[in-house]
Simulated scan of single mutants.
Amino acid sequence: MDISGRHEEDGEYLMVAAAVHARIDSSRVRSVEGMGFAAAREGPTLEATVALAADAVGDLPAPPDGPIVAEGGEFYEEPADRVGLSFQPEFKYVESIGERETVQAAHHAAYAVRDLLR
């Protein structure tokens, strides 16, 4: 998952989270099973960011059967076990190339949706 827009533009915020449900191996994305999105116009606190991400994961067509994965910076470098309290089945930060590629796909999706909503 990825979040776009955690910075102020013209006096307001528009954060968009994208969750990508993908089948991966250690080095690549094998298939994309679905995407979920959520948007918010509040400022980027840790609580708001986690809630937005959880909403995007909840918007997936089917619940993920593996961990929710993100870059550490998405949640202000908070420990994964603290962030993970808001996610099921589990949460972790990127460890493999396949996970990084999935997060990159989510990044592009979040950015594109944010552009559509502006």
Rank of each mutant, 00 (worst) to 15 (best):
E9V: 15
V113C: 09
A70Y: 02
A17F: 09
Y13F: 15
A56R: 10
T49R: 10
A38N: 01
S27L: 08
V103E: 00
S86N: 06
S96D: 00
V16Y: 01
L14K: 12
A17I: 08
V83Y: 03
E33G: 07
A38I: 04
R114Y: 03
E77H: 14
T49I: 09
L116F: 03
G58I: 14
G98M: 10
R82K: 14
L14S: 06
P44R: 10
G72N: 11
L46S: 00
D10M: 12
M15L: 13
V94I: 15
G34M: 06
G72D: 09
I97F: 10
A19Y: 00
L116C: 12
A48P: 00
P79I: 09
G5W: 01
G36W: 01
V16S: 08
V83L: 10
G58D: 06
G58H: 11
R28F: 03
P63R: 15
M35S: 09
K92L: 12
G34K: 10
A105L: 15
A17W: 04
P67G: 12
R82N: 04
G43H: 07
A56I: 05
E101P: 12
E9T: 14
R6T: 03
D10H: 15
M15A: 09
R118F: 06
L117T: 05
G66M: 08
A106D: 01
G43C: 03
L85H: 04
G5F: 01
V32C: 06
P79C: 02
A56Q: 08
R114G: 07
S26N: 12
H107Q: 13
A51Q: 08
V113K: 15
P64W: 06
H21F: 02
P44Y: 04
Y111E: 11
R6P: 02
F75L: 04
V32S: 03
G66C: 10
F75D: 00
G5A: 05
M1V: 11
I24E: 00
R82G: 05
V103T: 13
A56K: 11
A40P: 03
V50W: 05
V16Q: 02
H107F: 08
A70P: 08
G73L: 06
L52I: 07
F75N: 02
A19C: 04
G5Q: 01
L60F: 05
F91I: 08
G43F: 08
A70D: 00
V57E: 01
P67H: 09
D10Q: 14
L46P: 05
Y93V: 11
V50G: 02
R6S: 09
D25A: 14
D25R: 12
G11M: 14
E42T: 10
H21L: 14
A53N: 01
D55I: 07
L46W: 02
G34I: 06
E77V: 13
D10E: 13
M35P: 02
G66W: 04
G73H: 11
H108A: 15
D115N: 13
R41H: 09
A19L: 00
A40N: 05
A51I: 03
S27T: 15
E101T: 11
S31N: 05
E33H: 09
E47I: 04
A39Y: 00
G43D: 07
M15N: 11
S4R: 11
A105M: 14
E74D: 07
V69W: 00
R41W: 03
V20S: 01
